[in-house]
Design a binder for these strands. Sequence first.
DNA 1: GCCAACGTTGGC
DNA 2: GCCAACGTTGGC
Length: 170
Amino acid sequence: MPRKPAAPVNAPAYWLMKTEPDLFSLDTLKAKGVAPWDGVRNFQARNHMREMVVGDVVFIHHSNAEPSGIAGLAIVMRIAYPDHTSWDPKSDYFDAKSTPDKPRWSMVDVAYHATFGRYLALPELREMPELADMILLQRPRLSVQPVGPRHAALLLRLGRPDRPAPASRP
DNA sequence: GCCAACGTTGGC
DNA sequence: GCCAACGTTGGC
């Protein structure tokens, strides 16, 4: 018997993260250059961030927008580390169950990469059969999610970013 | 602003 | 460890 293929070495290299543009938009990230993605308070979303590696491509989705949709791309610059806002009582993201000794939440650093030449509005994406099984369209509440390579390729083509996505991990 | 989906909390 | 109540997300 041939050995089973190794467990997923090729975890997804494409991700999607949601943000409310009123609070933090792709333009905000563009102005900052690099920023920590803090405030994620959902275990599944957190676990996805913990799987990211430097160089992964992140689709930035604007939620609670008119319309909501994918605005462009960011790149992971630093792998997951403790989200210090979780133990700051003054932070909106404070969580009494998280301490510096036992951090419960994580964040990654991302860099602005590109703004799509065309904003990919959610209603438009919903009309595409190829995207019907995208997590974005099926699980409206998951704020950090993997994007499959086929979906990623299509989104990149649709958005025609002014700069191509960098080659990602194999 | 409404409300469906769904994750989390807490009583038992 | 079940599950009802509650809170939040986020599309519309």
